[in-house]
Amino acid sequence: MSKRIDVQNLNVFYGDFLAVKDASMVIEPRSVTAFIGPSGCGKSTFLRTLNRMHEVIPGGRVEGKVLLDNEDLYGPGVDPVAVRRTVGMVFQRPNPFPTMSIGDNVVAGLRLNGVKDKKVLKEKMEQSLRGANLWDEVKDRLDKPGAGLSGGQQQRLCIARAIAVSPDVLLMDEPCSALDPISTLAIEDLMNELKSEYTIVIVTHNMQQAARVADRTAFFNLEATGKPGMLVEMNDTQKMFSNPDQRATEDYISGRFG
């Protein structure tokens, strides 16, 4: 399943601080959308509002709408826990559960959803690990701790864990920033494969990465430190990197600031 995200006039607050101001965008299903921009511009914060992970931080709240195929994630009575079960997330630093084996890590989300059937768990485990291009590397040590894997393998394990629950959307918050180039390439290839099934949104500091993997790119910026971040431009990646509509985008991409 893959769903369209439609963000309408979203303001994100941490307490009284406005972190992202009036952002609107449409994210197409079965595509990779990249968020780029300087540090502190609110791109990660904005990403987290797409599965309500920003609410983990005290005082985090939004005004506006985030529609997932016309269902408002912030509608009355919507449980953030239910939102996160359909919008998966992969983090900057690989974070497999250290007390669980590789296999248990993959099916952790299924177990949380109440799946107990061993056969189903085993099938999903293999399917997800294959989906994350990790099966061949770990199939002989599924009962070993996930912490024994390399950073790149751990990150793919986290992706396997996220896709095991069959989410509609997969959010990735700088998933390669702690990885070496080879592992980064493996993750990028994986994104290309996964986008046939999922809506993928990735935050990246690496503009080449955005250019390589994303179909659409959004550029966030902030006027000054302490001012809210905002969406400057969103366009097809090719256009963003060759002939952007906004001057600020061109300045950033050509390296004149940021």
């Binding site: 992970m53 079960r85 983090f91 559960f97 007390t99 949380l112 629950v165």
Partner: peptide
């Protein structure tokens, strides 16, 4: 308990108690 572990559980759609059960308690055992 590293925030990363708690975030991992939260992002999988864990409730508060499930976060404690999957991330906090095993880490603290």
């Amino acid at each position: 308990t590293p925030q990363a572990h708690k975030d991992a559980a939260t992002a999988l759609g864990a409730t508060k108690w499930e976060v404690i059960r999957t991330a906090v308690l095993p880490f603290g055992k």
